[in-house]
Amino acid sequence: MGFKLLSKLLVYLTASIMAIASPLAFSVDSSGEYPTVSEIPVGEVRLYQIADGVWSHIATQSFDGAVYPSNGLIVRDGDELLLIDTAWGAKNTAALLAEIEKQIGLPVTRAVSTHFHDDRVGGVDVLRAAGVATYASPSTRRLAEVEGNEIPTHSLEGLSSSGDAVRFGPVELFYPGAAHSTDNLIVYVPSASVLYGGCAIYELSRTSAGNVADADLAEWPTSIERIQQHYPEAQFVIPGHGLPGGLDLLKHTTNVVKAHTNRSVVE
């Protein structure tokens, strides 16, 4: 069995187990497998329904001669939608809004960016022009300005110390501490036991640490421990890039980060 097929099978099995364990909360999309990078042309966006009122959005972007996937989250909030992270750029984010209108038909009224990198804030200006209120932590807003990236308009308070959590509509926002970046936030959907790890969490097929220019490698494993301790009931975990899975993604990420750190020390 090929690795790609095995990865998709694991996603399907995880979703099936969740649907059985929580039949009222989960209505997993039966329309197909989780979209992969090879299936999404740059400039297009796919939506994948995880649970009743919960979707991931998947886009792709060219970077350094390669094409990478990027995940975000959409959560229903009454007759409105909360968006977590842009679709990595203005063109993708405009396509995301169009796809949401086509498939869901509810307005996106608020959006949260989970850290300051372009795959999370690139497209904020498109959201703002569409009347979406954009939010991020003060740290993310400051770092985005320093980096020359787009800056969300509103500040999220109460997320300055490791372990801080605040309720934001249908989700809980959690600051686990520094990891992929010093400002990275985690998003949890309690009604569906869905954990969105953003770039602080890796997919299972990833074996290298990737972009760690703004990471705190020493603190990252401790931050992941905080996530595990705060959300032990999480059933569906979405990484910032690639295929979702279960809580095993947290341990896998820790292993990859520690291996990278150990290699760096040896070198």
Rank of each mutant, 00 (worst) to 15 (best):
L217N: 04
E99P: 04
A95H: 15
L173W: 01
K102S: 13
I104W: 00
G65I: 08
P107M: 08
D164W: 04
D64E: 08
S155L: 11
L195N: 01
G210V: 06
P190E: 10
Y196I: 02
S205R: 08
H115C: 00
K8L: 07
D85G: 01
S205W: 07
V42W: 06
Q61T: 09
N262F: 10
G105S: 12
L127A: 03
E150A: 05
V189D: 04
R76V: 09
V45E: 03
R226L: 09
S27D: 11
P138S: 09
V171R: 01
L10F: 14
D77S: 08
T114E: 00
H230R: 15
T14A: 08
Q103I: 13
T261V: 14
R167A: 12
L96S: 00
R226K: 08
P239T: 01
A87P: 03
L204W: 09
A178C: 04
V237P: 01
S160A: 14
T86H: 01
L243A: 15
L243D: 14
E101C: 06
A129C: 02
E80R: 08
V54R: 02
D164P: 05
D118F: 06
S191H: 15
P239V: 01
T86F: 00
S70R: 01
L185V: 10
V189Y: 05
V112P: 04
D118M: 06
W55E: 00
I40R: 06
T86K: 04
L243T: 15
L82T: 08
L159T: 03
D164K: 09
T153D: 11
G177R: 02
R263Q: 15
W220E: 00
I74A: 06
G72W: 02
L81E: 01
D79G: 11
V189I: 10
A234S: 09
T182F: 13
K251R: 13
S30Q: 13
G210N: 05
T254V: 14
S155A: 14
G43L: 04
A215N: 06
P35D: 07
S27W: 10
A15C: 14
A111G: 08
A136L: 03
Q103C: 10
L217W: 07
H252N: 08
L97Y: 01
V212C: 05
G240S: 03
D77V: 04
P239Q: 03
E99K: 13
G123Y: 05
Y68F: 15
P239C: 00
G177S: 07
D79H: 09
G53I: 08
E203W: 01
E225A: 13
I224E: 01
I17E: 09
F63T: 09
F3T: 10
R46P: 04
N71T: 05
V108I: 10
V265I: 12
W55P: 01
R120I: 01
T222I: 11
T182R: 13
I224R: 01
V11D: 11
D214C: 05
P239D: 00
A21C: 15
S137F: 02
D85F: 00
A130M: 12
P232A: 09
G131D: 08
H57K: 00
Y196T: 01
L47M: 09
L217A: 05
S223Y: 04
K258V: 11
C199R: 03
V257G: 01
D77M: 05
A90M: 09
L249Q: 00
F174M: 13
L5F: 13
G32W: 10
L6E: 15
A192K: 10
G148E: 07
V187K: 01
Y202H: 11
A200P: 01
P221M: 09
R141S: 04
A136T: 06
R110P: 05
Y202E: 04
Y34A: 08
L173H: 09
L106V: 11
L127Q: 00
S62C: 07
V75R: 02
S22M: 14
G123W: 05
W88F: 03
T114M: 07
V112G: 04
P138G: 09
N92W: 01
